[in-house]
Design a protein around this nucleic acid. Sequence first.
DNA 1: GAATACATGTAAAATGTTACATGATTTT
DNA 2: AAAATCATGTAACATTTTACATGTATTC
Lengths: 180, 180
Amino acid sequence: MLKYVLLGFLNYRNASGYDLKQLMDVSTSNFWHAKQSQIYTTLKKLEEDGMVASHIEPQESRPNRKVYEITETGRDDLKNWLSQPLMEIESRKEKLLLKLFFSAQLDPEKILTQLRLQKTLHKDNLEKYQTITKGVVQQFAASTDMADDARLWEATRRFGELYEEMYIRWVDETIEKLEE
Amino acid sequence: MLKYVLLGFLNYRNASGYDLKQLMDVSTSNFWHAKQSQIYTTLKKLEEDGMVASHIEPQESRPNRKVYEITETGRDDLKNWLSQPLMEIESRKEKLLLKLFFSAQLDPEKILTQLRLQKTLHKDNLEKYQTITKGVVQQFAASTDMADDARLWEATRRFGELYEEMYIRWVDETIEKLEE
DNA sequence: GAATACATGTAAAATGTTACATGATTTT
DNA sequence: AAAATCATGTAACATTTTACATGTATTC
């Protein structure tokens, strides 16, 4: 899957592994994240498979950059993946719910502390969607011929916002019920 | 992490790998799922680590059952994990958002079809939380001395319900904006 | 003087998925 | 007659994380 994140970005413009990590962190990380090391190994494999090509860009007083470019094969593969409909819903993994599920044996006060901590974390994240992420989307939207793209990016940002609102609501509700 | 799902269930009562898969499917699968094969290999590893012990229960006209039991070490490890606070929020992966993010080059009608399909899938899932999952929780709640546990299970079920409501709302909103 | 940004990667371990293998009983 | 349930597992593969390894330039 990371494959398509990389091809997706390279379809806009050439980039190095470092650039791609940067791009992901400010955009897709909210629904698809990856470590630097995984990005490098996946790019290597994509090049072996002929999906991308690379060349070295020498730099003075900075390590050389290895810049990747999408190939025709890569473009076709990306487009094909994009048009494939998703027939299933994603199955989530949520450590907090897992802990909560088995926490009856725990001191109730500990559970409440746990929930209150998660609330502050999700509040911060909600604010991030409403300020930083919103700013990034608007910046790209204004830039060039990216109006169509920007609408979709805004939709993914909005998901993050709604998700965090929902999460906070759920924590509040759960704390209330447990305090009874 | 699967480790703690298995220890969590074995802390209630002894079970085979097959039983544990069954239990997960009707309860934790909404926030933690696993394939049968992973459950078997993880149980094997847990036994090597002394967290669980097993014995064979012969059966007539059915394959023998390998029943696992949690050890004192396992119980301690589980309790320790439960009391550890979570300092971070979970990072999700959501294929639909990923596709959507890069879909500007696609025929707009295809995007709408994609979204409408996801809506029906999430509607079905919402209904499942409101009927089947709700029933399972209530059944356990009524059974024995599980009142404390049932409250927490209900909280995780409620998360699923709120999540699906949010998801459907987001799809509706997104379809509306894209139809403009 | 320390931390962060820039920039690359490899190796090992952990985690998760898919496919294979077997075979009786029960339900549709 | 076919499909699902019961019940176990292994092997190969793919994905992801963690740790290691290096080194300069800029910012705090």
